[in-house]
Design a protein around this nucleic acid. Structure first.
Length: 420
DNA sequence: ATCTGGCTAGGAC
DNA sequence: CTAACGGTCCTAGCCAGAT
């Protein structure tokens, strides 16, 4: 039977989240910036129309943005994550199989549904009514084609936010695919698209009809799968359960450069806390912690130094204190005086299930309640209520955020500012 | 001859 | 006034070394 996979994608998600609480910004040009107010990571339609690109460094376009009256928000991930959970929750009622693919996208398996397009229109209406977030729905026989269908739904106002590839005739499919560039296909980025162009393949139609064997030899299995998916042969299934992470990273660019090891100690302790929290949340332990510090790669006039060190943790653990000790040791080993550090982070790897993990029978037993208590206190009273002693005595490294909106949905003390 | 770990490239969002 | 460019996560493919 023909599969009907739907991809539901929120429009300009971060901008839409801000607009829910600031309806006065409807029809106005709005952007949301990355951490440190670095780059543009979400644009309203008005901003896209001005030709401002995704990922554009903010300082480069600040003047032009001011001239056009663009409103810029610092990123407010607490808000976006909470809104995302609500959206995903609403969507879960529309299919027995949902794969939450990213903060603003879900795949839903609608195979066998009587009126797929009607169902999709209902999805849009419901999310809009419950949460005020506009979404588009693309439907196809494979994930790759549902992504492409979503692209069409977003681009063509006549589709009214829903596009179903499955109901098209063969020649209609051809003309749709002929009008989309290969760079818009899921899994094809800048490099692959350049190498396809060099081969004379410009459109999705050309790619779909390319010789599968030759393409596999030249570009690898990823390309082979993409081509199969474009031909309606599903290679990438919808998976409802998300597997535990194999790697957990916590890192940040600093608001200002730092020279002092004590500032880096503070930052690293903070990153360990954050990463270990995620580790415990998925019920895992880590066997390796890697620490890295970096100078500003954009400053050609300054000496660069980007060391890192991997430290095996003798007995894999989820204990912030233990991990922090190893990370601190790593930092001591790689730190050199005299550099201006701009970024640092920790990476946890060799991650395994805590319940299956080998324990160290000679080690002093640390009460598991300690970490548990720390997580509960922080969940209840806010992140950072209870911290490691190294974390937070110095905050010289904290990021710039000039225009962050209130945490409307997750903090009572910020709700009062809501203007709705 | 095959498996393994380490590392880089490329990609998504 | 100047300087100012994100964060997390994945898989494939290659190589070297071990089995």
């Amino acid at each position: 039977m023909q599969q009907s996979i739907a991809l539901v994608d929120c429009n300009n998600f971060y901008v839409s989240c801000e607009r829910v609480f600031r309806p006065d910004l409807e029809n106005k040009p709005v952007v949301v910036l990355s951490n440190n107010d670095g780059c543009v990571v979400a644009r309203s339609g008005e901003v896209k129309a001005l030709g401002i690109n995704m990922g554009e460094p903010w300082f480069k376009i600040r003047d032009a943005a001011r001239r056009h009256g663009i409103i810029a928000f610092s990123s407010n991930y607490a808000l976006y994550a909470d809104m995302s959970n609500r959206v995903m929750n609403v969507l879960s009622a529309f299919s027995p199989h949902q794969e939450v693919y990213s903060i603003d996208e879900s795949f839903l398996d609608l195979t066998g549904f009587a009126d797929v397009r009607g169902h999709a229109r209902e999805i849009r209406k419901t999310v809009r009514r419950h949460l005020g977030i506009p979404v588009c729905v693309g439907i196809g026989p494979t994930k790759t084609l549902s992504k492409l269908a979503n692209h069409v739904a977003k681009k063509h106002p006549r589709s009214e936010g829903v596009f179903d590839y499955n109901v098209l005739t063969g020649s209609q499919r051809q003309s749709v695919l002929k009008n989309i560039g290969v760079n818009d296909v899921w899994g094809i980025g800048k490099k692959l698209s350049a190498s396809l162009h060099a081969q004379g393949i410009e459109t999705v139609l050309q790619l779909r009809d390319a010789n599968a064997k030759g393409m596999r030899a030249k570009h690898g299995v990823v390309m082979e799968r993409i081509i199969a998916e474009l031909n309606g042969i599903s290679c990438i299934g919808v998976t409802d359960i998300d597997p535990p992470k194999k790697q957990i990273v916590s890192s940040r660019s600093f608001g200002q450069t730092v020279e002092d090891i004590d500032d880096l100690k503070d930052a690293i302790a903070h990153f360990v806390t954050n990463a270990a929290l995620k580790l415990r949340a998925q019920g895992s332990v880590a066997g390796i912690v890697q620490v890295f510090i970096m100078t500003d790669r954009f400053r050609n006039d300054q000496p660069q130094y980007n060391p890192s060190m991997s430290l095996p943790i003798p007995v894999p653990t989820d204990d912030s204190l233990l991990i922090s000790q190893w990370a601190g040791r790593g930092l001591d080993a790689i730190f050199r005086k005299g550099y201006f550090y701009k970024k640092a982070g920790v990476i946890l790897s060799e991650i395994s299930d805590k319940s299956l993990a080998q324990t160290d029978m000679f080690a002093p037993i640390r009460k598991p309640e300690l970490m548990h208590a720390m997580d509960s206190v922080n969940a209840r009273f806010g992140k950072g209520a209870l911290r490691l002693s190294q974390d937070g005595s110095r905050r010289s490294w904290s990021m710039r955020q000039e225009n962050r909106s209130p945490e409307y949905t997750t903090r009572w003390d910020e709700v009062a500012v809501c203007r709705c």
